[in-house]
Amino acid sequence: MLLRNILVASLAVCVSSPFVSAWTFSNATLAINERSGTLETRPFSMSMPLPEIMSLPSSALARLRFTVRSDLTPDTNNKPHQAYAIIEDPVTKLESSFAVDVRENGRARVDIDYKMIPTALLGANKPLTLTIVLASFGTESPLKVEIGHIQPVYNGPAPAGPIRFGPKPEIIHIFRSDPKFVSSTVSLFFSAIIVFVAIVLIGSWSYLGVTPSKLFTALGSSPLGHLGFFTSIVAIEIAFLNYYVGSTIFNLIAQVSVLAPIAFLSGSRALRELRSRRLKGEW
């Protein structure tokens, strides 16, 4: 964008020279188009610009069509090296340029979409000046012709001024407070529930006749199943405890993903051993 504006500015300086341009254009029209069709079309020329201000709705675009001709090489090359359509605010002198697509035979076209016009130009107090610039390297003098005015339909807020370097308002950072742990009363309450459930579980085992001797029998029949299941369950509980104390969720997922298959396989083996003893009437 900066390079293009520099080129356009250079062309404007060259145009101000007293030489007569070797570039001309003809068969020029400006059409205001929407999706529904063409709203209006106006012809113009180098000597007769658009007599009226063309209104550009927010859903439309301005289509420029014309034929470029070089007086030096009219039969071999009618394509300039630079071709732009410039819209300019006559009050602030702010402008925006649009590259013109020119073929070798001189047919030129450019679409100025409403959405591509900067907000600073949309909110201009006066109609925007529309200019065509043609130029090339060599001995050919450039051409800059004002062809008329367009008025974008803008109902938004007034454009804000440019951002200047300088002190900015103070930024006050509000950091998130440290996480709070559950109160000791709640922790003691749930701890008491866990202890109570453990006592009830041990009492139920005693009522059913589970004794330490049967525990040793189970370990002797399937040591890997029972020890693996019990150890993996304890390890999973420790992993959750570490997460509660301060570990990350990713560490918890990694640990549980390793321990869960071990608990599943060893638990299945322990249940098969228990089922075999129940079928034998040893439980």
Rank of each mutant, 00 (worst) to 15 (best):
F25R: 12
P57D: 12
F19E: 13
F196W: 07
L227H: 00
F240C: 08
I194G: 08
L259H: 05
G123A: 09
T131W: 00
L61S: 08
L208V: 01
P162H: 01
F44R: 04
I236P: 07
L56W: 02
S136G: 06
N5F: 15
V68S: 08
M1V: 06
V68T: 12
V186P: 01
M46V: 03
S183A: 12
T217L: 03
T248V: 02
K79D: 10
S204Q: 03
I163A: 05
R277Y: 03
Y244N: 04
Y84D: 04
S247V: 04
S55Q: 15
I53F: 13
L61G: 10
G148Y: 00
D111I: 04
T231A: 14
S268P: 01
Y84F: 15
T73A: 05
V102E: 10
S206Y: 01
Y84T: 12
G225A: 06
S266N: 13
R65F: 03
M46C: 03
G37N: 14
L227S: 02
H173A: 10
I132S: 13
A218Y: 11
R65A: 11
E282T: 09
I238L: 15
L224M: 09
K168I: 09
S187W: 09
L219C: 08
G123K: 07
E170K: 09
V195M: 10
Q255T: 13
S17T: 14
S70Q: 10
A31I: 03
T231G: 10
E273S: 15
I262K: 07
I147C: 01
E88H: 05
N5P: 03
I202T: 02
I32N: 13
S58V: 07
L128E: 08
S183M: 04
W205A: 04
G209Q: 02
S206G: 01
